[in-house]
Design a protein around this nucleic acid. Structure first.
Lengths: 246, 246
DNA sequence: CAGTGGTCTAGACCACTGC
DNA sequence: CAGTGGTCTAGACCACTGC
């Protein structure tokens, strides 16, 4: 009743072995080779059959447990999470759905300026009072249909931004190209009722519900690079997440 | 410029060594002994100075990196995340804030029944069509002020529930007492405008914004034990989360 | 009791960074 | 180049589960 595994492990590859195992088990689960709910061989035998050490095998399985694909219990064993559960885990946000189904995302820059930041923004970005920042608002669309209104403030001492580069490339691509390595982001998700201005831009009735998101992103040097307030059409967007018991 | 560590490690304790290290470093950061932004000793020396093996030291540091307290870079070293960033990471939801500040949470059971589930609920709980479930609605308050309206459906083949036990104990405590070990939950967060009924119960103007949350929780046997729809007053509640770059 | 995952050791070699 | 984290090995002993 337990599943052995026959994964392609390439020791010459630059891809870490544990990562190859993660991808291999993921694929076996997706293809149905590893059946929903079925038990895996114990991790010691599994490691041996792939010619891997147990810690490497365990590291791979840890990742799959954290991703919600496997469930482990001491003294008992490791199981593939049931397909019914997995389907629900795989649900992504409506927006991602739209994009995955072939929708074309696009972004329109509505306003752009380079100005002195308010005290509140200085605090969020950990800048000295009076520092200058880029400030801009953008409208995010899928298949020409408006989905989100995004307002952002970005430090001006890392990457030079202007309206045309922003329109062409997208904020995160632009910052990454400029050498920013993001490490952390703090997000807060809430709700609001659309103002007339927002409703007009998002093409919804005023007094419709909006999902609101505030985010501050930090790079590997500890700089708060960017902060923003986004609002999404509640009829088109929700945040999906999987919580795994630790 | 690098920080050594002098943590109390108790090898006789049943608490795993790596967990003692996590707690110790957390405490050192909180107390200011490890300064914000400062560099730690390299992990090999750190392990040696605590008489631990490197893998154990690394496991502890992995956890702190995932929690957003440390930042690592290959070839460079490990740093304590700056205090400015950390403060923002430590922000919790408004509701938790209220409770931490000494607010008293309480729950009122509004309706309770044991009935045949709709097809939609059967699908969410992976039950055979026509199965019976517990269905109830509750009002969650802090200091007597309404914050959330919760509607839940629970399988009836695991734990016997009635209105009085639910009112006394809380749903999750009740299920845990009944031997349920939760493993996964799938959550979806969105927004809506309050109906008149909701507005009345939550003591807000109708047409106010609500944060909506749908959740299905799965136990270690792969059973979808519980599903629910909760709505929160948007002026009192938001979901806070930290994303760590993997 | 046998079987399983949980923790831990004492090493090794490599890849990347910054000088 | 020296210093750092990233990956990997081949074991060991323990704690928990279910019979």
């Amino acid at each position: 009743m337990t599943n052995s595994l026959n994964l392609p492990i390439d020791r010459a590859s630059p891809v870490p072995l544990y990562h190859q195992v993660v991808k291999g088990i993921e694929a076996a689960i997706t293809s149905g080779e590893l059946e929903a709910g079925s038990k895996l061989e114990n991790e010691i035998d599994l490691a041996a059959s792939l010619n891997l050490s147990r810690p490497t095998m365990r590291k791979a399985m840890d990742e799959l447990v954290r991703a919600g694909l496997l469930v482990r219990k001491r003294g008992v064993g490791t199981q593939v999470v049931s397909s019914q559960v997995r389907r629900s885990l795989e649900l992504s946000s409506l927006f991602d759905d739209l994009v995955q189904r072939g929708g074309k995302p696009s972004t329109e820059v509505l306003t752009f300026s380079h100005l002195q930041a308010t005290p509140a923004i200085c605090e969020k970005l950990a800048l000295a009072p009076g520092s200058k920042v880029y400030h801009f608002t953008r409208l995010r669309m899928v298949d020409g249909k408006p989905l989100a209104l995004m307002e952002n403030w970005v430090r001006d001492d890392i990457v030079k931004i202007d309206e045309s580069t922003l329109a062409g490339e997208g904020l995160y691509a632009l910052l990454r190209t400029g050498g920013v390595n993001f490490r952390l982001a703090k997000q807060s998700i809430g709700a609001a009722v659309a103002t007339k201005h927002q409703a007009g831009l998002l093409e919804i009735d005023s007094a419709s519900a909006l999902v609101t998101m505030e985010r501050t992103a930090v790079d590997d040097k500890g700089r708060n690079v960017e902060t923003g307030q986004h609002v999404y059409r509640a009829d088109q967007y929700s945040f999906e997440m999987t919580l795994v018991q630790r």
